[in-house]
Design a protein around this nucleic acid. Structure first.
Lengths: 340, 340
DNA sequence: GCCTCCAAGTGTTACGTATAACCCCGCTCG
DNA sequence: CGAGCGGGGTTATACGTAACACTTGGAGGC
């Protein structure tokens, strides 16, 4: 029996099975066809099981020069959206023997520990949300393979991108509201500098510019229910005709908008229609339930990981945006007659 | 200049600075006081900076036999509660040169990649939520230092525990509702086998048993808004007098309960009062806003990490539950007169 | 004048793994 | 009957770091 104080190594297994350490490595690494007899391989496996052998990852990583671990950088963990992204990515990763480590946004953690400083030798690649762009320069400093989520396909030099077709989602929302007779819009926009949000504003403005009589005002808001409520309340009570539809950059903002409407003594959707984007659990918790755009977060994460695996493999990452789906619920209705 | 194709090692730095690799290790490891002259140390640091040297973590981990990385096991990433726990833990970890890796519950990822199989040599310790108890046996199989969050202090053999004083939260909720005149309770309970949930049921039952005329029925529900709505709707329309207060194991369940009340043509809080537990963003998105118990998720994570650091240091982990706070909002009000 | 001591380093080793290079033996084939 | 070959292994080495043991040149003590 080996000394039990410390963890067994492949050499301990070798001794127990009466073979060399190299043979253990071959058998356990599944490289033994034609190099080790079936009987010996069985002895090795049995010895490994008996001793409870687990390979030392640090040693393996050092030897191989790679870690089979990738980093997922998300802007914050405050909604289930990125939980879904993680789940999808981790599922694909697991099938390929990879692990996924999560790195929620730097805020609140402080610069004391820059993950990328240490990461370079501990990671094989990075998947990053464009909303965590502040970390981008740090990432590019390293030479790690990178996949960007929901980022400008042209602007992010070199990095592969995987995108949800949010532009189409915005178009669907806009058509839906136009069909209901709305012409006066408020865009409650996330005050986060990111391509994915700027693109939404552009898409909405472009469609409404093509619609005679339609107009839109934009109000920036922090991505929190109370921040959104404050911003929406101010924008809705501004002088001039009141918007009849509020298009929000995500569901949290929409929840704030709904509160704002109620605090002004108005009703959703009779006086003001509200739309979100994400389809979080929050969307169906509201009363009325939220008309929103469903994003398939898990598929998003899955595609991100597949793209990264392709890059690591020197293959061309698959292109094509992920389709999204308008979900019509109770928060949108026919436009009320214009008010002065 | 060193070969630029591959990353620089400490030996490259040594050559550039005209010293031995050992000297580089001493200087960069901050162990050089009295062993290397100030001037030499400066040369080494400059060379390291010029070359963009980053130590290879795999090699360091192998040499030191530890990784300065701990695992945080959470049941799921679907609420911001565990995001807060992570943030708190990561903050403390960063101050001590540790990193935190997140492991969201196994469900959805599949057993293909058991994190603990590989973890043992890549982790120094584990912080685990009791709600992810299915992973517990795997954890205990390894000999990693373990801190349990919100777990039975007596039952979890050997492991240190850090608890929120949720029992007190339940007591505060109960007193609040009793003071409002409620005597007939429905307990909407999470259908997850976990000490923290069982404890809530016990605490509620104990207090109501001591109150003449009070009674409580329990309805188990999955932790999802729609699941909770279904369960609450059934329980509220069951034969016999209708409960006037619904005490829920968390805010998501409470959101479902509110929907159920409305679907039965009743109103919150006029006909039925509802309470939650967590104080998620969801709580203030609802209308009326939710009376709930605020849990300090960040402090929870912080204490968890501090406890783990203590264990790693062979010190006694600090005890004492983390206080919680009742937040009274609009979802609770005076009890309606009993209905048959 | 010799021994001791200290500052300022250097040489060497080990951590555990994967793999390239080698070795031996029995069998087949020319 | 010797060369060749393939099955079944073994030996040796390198990955990059941290730390222990050792060296050297001079200053100081007695």
């Amino acid at each position: 029996m080996a000394r039990s104080s410390t963890r067994p190594t492949s050499r301990d297994v070798a001794q127990a099975a009466g073979v060399s350490q190299a043979a253990v490595s071959l058998v356990l690494g599944d490289k033994w066809r034609g190099r080790v007899s079936e009987a010996t391989a069985d002895r090795v496996r049995e010895a490994a099981r008996d001793l409870g052998y687990r390979p030392n990852l640090a040693a393996r990583n050092l030897r191989l020069g790679r870690t089979r671990t990738v980093l997922l950088v998300v802007p914050a963990l405050t909604t289930e959206f990125f939980a879904g992204v993680y789940t999808g990515a981790a599922r694909v990763a697991g099938r390929h023997g990879f692990g996924v480590v999560l790195y929620p946004s730097p805020e609140g953690i402080g610069p004391a520990r820059d993950p990328f400083a240490s990461a370079q030798s501990a990671l094989d690649g990075v998947i990053a949300s464009s909303m965590a762009a502040d970390a981008l320069t740090a990432i590019r400093g390293d030479q790690l393979p990178l996949v960007m989520l929901d980022s400008d396909p042209d602007g992010s030099l070199g990095a592969a991108t995987v995108n949800l077709d949010i532009a189409d989602g915005v178009r669907q929302v806009t058509e839906h509201l136009l069909a209901l007779g709305h012409r006066h819009f408020l865009h409650l926009a996330a005050d986060v500098p990111s391509w994915t949000f700027e693109m939404r504003a552009r898409e909405l403005a472009a469609r409404l510019a093509a619609e005679p009589g339609a107009r839109v005002r934009t109000a920036p808001a922090p991505i929190s229910i109370d921040g959104a409520r404050t911003a929406a309340e101010a924008a809705l009570s501004a002088p001039g005709p009141r918007p009849t539809a509020v298009v929000c950059d995500d569901d949290k903002l929409a929840a704030g908008a709904c509160k704002a409407v109620r605090r002004l003594g108005l009703r959703v959707p009779d006086d003001v229609s509200v739309t979100g984007l994400d389809d979080l659990a929050l969307a169906t918790a509201l009363d009325p339930e939220l008309t929103t755009v469903r994003l398939d977060a898990e598929l998003f994460g899955q595609r991100g990981m597949e793209a990264l695996l392709a890059v690591l493999d020197d293959r061309e990452p698959p292109g094509g945006d992920i389709p999204v789906e308008l979900v019509v619920r109770g928060s949108t209705g026919p436009a009320a007659p214009a008010t002065p």
